[in-house]
């Protein structure tokens, strides 16, 4: 039963990797990375269930945290042209 879940998640991850490769704009790639991360969290959880090892879920929880922080860090950089804690960039019209 979990094997079918693993296969489904694996196919979704492959498709997401293809979108990551093809994605025209940067934000398609960030979207694909975020979705790939969430699918990986589920993948680790299901693999943990498949191999009867409950400690995988700690790894999955940690991965979910890191995935979110990574996505927000990338976006923060490209939105504010910097990590946002420097003095405001010189072209303010971009900041509407």
């Amino acid at each position: 039963m979990f094997l079918i879940g693993v296969i489904a998640l694996f196919i979704a991850m492959i498709l997401m990797l293809y979108r990551l490769y093809v994605g025209p704009t940067l934000y398609d790639r960030v979207l694909a990375t975020n979705s790939f991360g969430t699918t990986t969290v589920l993948f680790i959880g299901v693999i943990g269930f498949l191999t009867e090892r409950p400690d995988f879920l700690d790894i999955a929880l940690l991965y979910a945290l890191i995935n979110f922080v990574g996505t927000i860090a990338i976006l923060k950089f490209f939105r504010y042209r910097a990590m946002g804690d420097y003095p405001q960039p010189e072209h303010p019209e971009d900041m509407q």
Binding site: M1, I4, M13, L42
Partner: peptide, 15 residues
């Protein structure tokens, strides 16, 4: 689990 796999694949195909 089957439903979850279905929706995950649908989301990926949609993307």
């Amino acid at each position: 689990i089957l439903g979850g796999g279905f929706f995950t694949i649908i989301g990926a195909v949609g993307t």
